[in-house]
Each structure stands twice: as structure tokens, then as C-alpha cells.
């Protein structure tokens, strides 16, 4: 499943980049994230509870940042496993300077397996998009607030 999105941040690229690389900010914005602990450089162990009320379930997995080109682009690889199955995502994230704003483009692929793929395909695209939208909406809010000095 392909997943694409574009999010306009009211902040310069430097600020957006800083947020995107900040584990605390990310952990605070990943929907349902209960824990994000470092596993090494640019690799994290994540524990999350899918925040869709009927489909609650614990997932544990890893998040890795690769191919970093500061202020411009990086790749985010996510792997998670839970009772409902597994999720793997590879996304390319690109930042584009637009004056006072920064456009963050997300272009990725998500593979889902197990019961959620087998019996939940009807909602997969929608849930993926909803969670991604929530994540970037949260980050946009953080970006709009002036960073602590």
C-alpha cells in the first residue's frame, strides 16, 4: 500500500528538521506511543497502543532513521509486531523551504500482515492516513510554538 502526504509547517526548515529528529517530540506525536527508547544511533524501540478504540492492541517495534541529508531529507523505516499482525513501513521524507514555511512531503510504502491485513483491509488505507495526519498535525502544532530558548 502506497501512502503519500504533504504537510505545510509554519516554521523554517531548520526548526522542522530539529523536531523531526527529536525523539521526545516524535514520541509525543506518534498516536498511542507509550515508549520510545534508543537502541543505538538513529534507532529506537517503540511501544504503542493503536489508538483506534475498537482495535486496541499493543505493538512493539523499531523505528530507524537513515539516509539523512540535514534540513532536506531522510528515510524513516518502521517495523512493528502485535497480536493483530505486523506492520512495516518505509517512507522517504523531504523538506522543501517555502519562505517562512516548510513543506514536508511523505512518500512511503506500508506492508501489513497477519489478521489486520486479512480481515481489516477495508480500513487499512483510512487508518494509516488518519494516523499519519494526526502525527503531522501534532508536529505542526509543536513547530508553531516557539522553541524553548
Amino acid at each position: 500500500m502506497d501512502i503519500k502526504g504533504s504537510y505545510t509547517f509554519d516554521a523554517p526548515a531548520s526548526r522542522v528538521w530539529e523536531l523531526l529528529m527529536d525523539p521526545a517530540a516524535i514520541a509525543g506525536c506518534i498516536p498511542g506511543c507509550r515508549e520510545l527508547s534508543p537502541l543505538g544511533e538513529d534507532r529506537y524501540r517503540a511501544v504503542l497502543v493503536v489508538p483506534v478504540s475498537a482495535i486496541t492492541g499493543n505493538y512493539t517495534g523499531t523505528i530507524a532513521v537513515t539516509d539523512k541529508v540535514p534540513l532536506q531529507s531522510y528515510r524513516l523505516n518502521v517495523e512493528g509486531n502485535g497480536r493483530g499482525g505486523f506492520v512495516r513501513g518505509q517512507t522517504a521524507i523531504t523538506l522543501t523551504d517555502a519562505g517562512a514555511q516548510t513543506i514536508v512531503a511523505v512518500d512511503g510504502q506500508v506492508q501489513v500482515g497477519g489478521a489486520i491485513a486479512r480481515v481489516g483491509q477495508r480500513l487499512l488505507e483510512g487508518v494509516s492516513r488518519m494516523l499519519m495526519d494526526q502525527f503531522y498535525a501534532c508536529l505542526k502544532n509543536k513547530a508553531a510554538v516557539a522553541p524553548p530558548v
Partner: peptide, 14 residues
């Protein structure tokens, strides 16, 4: 009719 199928499929648990 919404909850029980999800529980039986183990997509939801409680």
C-alpha cells in the same frame, strides 16, 4: 455485533 467479531478475530482484546 461490532465488538464480538473483533474479539473473536483477536484484532481487539480486553
Amino acid at each position: 455485533h461490532s465488538l464480538i467479531p473483533l474479539l473473536k478475530l483477536r484484532i481487539a482484546s480486553t
